[in-house]
Design a protein around this nucleic acid. Structure first.
Lengths: 171, 171
DNA sequence: AAAATATACTTCGATATCGAAGTATATGAA
DNA sequence: TTCATATACTTCGATATCGAAGTATATTTT
């Protein structure tokens, strides 16, 4: 059967047709679209942070800590969507850079609470501006209504994927 | 001035308000939403590919080569959104794994054309099914109409960011 | 209370990625 | 034609990331 590359309706396509379509048209695949977009967000952010001598890897943790201070590494991993062993390394780096400090939780000695130093806290105002501006650049010329739909869709896809990851015992 | 965390309209928010809002509500930030979504796509794909002994790093290149064979490393970098030096390393790995081969372009000796081996080509059917299924899982329960809006938005954001990256001389 | 299980963190070795700076070849300008 | 610039690829050293397996502490079950 020939593969139609145009406006075929997914719900009426059979299996081979769907595979063919996504195979030949990455722009139809959310995996592709999301990855490409992410790479570019990340690169731009990276370039901006470099001018402040902040490693991109630290950014995501700072972002969490500015909202809630004194949290476990587990919590940071969940919020940043980064594996726990990665978080260990990153937090060590942040401690060495004087951004955060760590102490064992008195009531549960398995936990180590991570807290901002005054220096870490002081970066918020300086750095958040970049995040805001990059978001503004990215969304330029797009209707607020469509942005809102997309936020919902991205959140829902994340949920769907998380559920599947758990189901398959990944992470 | 107090920051309203509810349904403020961005177009009427002043600077501090926008920063405060995005700072405290990462779910409003596309940088955050896209990254989280990407991480989960990537992890799930990774878990699937591991069962076929294929490194995730190779996947994106295979994906391009299945559509168009015998292309330059530059082309591969552009299509995969990966820096050229990364592509060098990856293609070397793929050559060693017997997935592709390389030859200098006769008409332009700067170029090295990368082409699939029969083995590399033979993986397409086996592996594309995973990509399709993961997309299906991710988009479960979302209206096709909203998906289409989101595809457009993601593509447009990628364009906007690309333009800015060029403007700032990044990449 | 002892044993089994779960949770938080860590260590290890590997992979994926980049920026900066370098080499070889091609193209355009003087 | 020769010099300057651009393009494609490479090398190097660093960062960001993970999976698997290990340790310490807490919680649950028997």
């Amino acid at each position: 059967m020939p593969v139609r590359l145009d406006s075929a309706n997914p719900s009426t396509m059979d299996e081979d047709e769907v595979i063919g379509k996504i195979a030949r048209m990455p722009e139809k695949s959310f995996g592709y679209l999301v990855r490409r977009c992410h790479r570019r967000f990340d690169r731009l952010l990276n370039a901006r942070l470099a001018t402040h001598d902040i490693k991109t890897g630290f950014w995501y943790y700072l972002r969490v800590l500015w909202i809630r201070d004194q949290v476990t590494q587990k919590y940071l991993s969940d919020m940043t969507n980064v594996a726990e062993n990665t978080t260990v390394t990153m937090i060590e780096g942040m401690v060495n850079s004087g951004l955060v400090q760590r102490e064992v939780d008195a009531t549960d000695k398995r936990k180590r609470l991570v807290g901002l130093t005054p220096y870490g806290r002081s970066l918020e105002n300086k750095l958040m501006g970049h995040a805001v501006e990059i978001n503004r650049i990215a969304t330029r010329g797009i209707k607020e209504e469509d942005l809102e739909v997309s936020r919902r869709v991205l959140a829902r896809m994340s949920e769907n994927l998380q559920q599947e990851l758990r189901r398959e015992g990944v992470g």
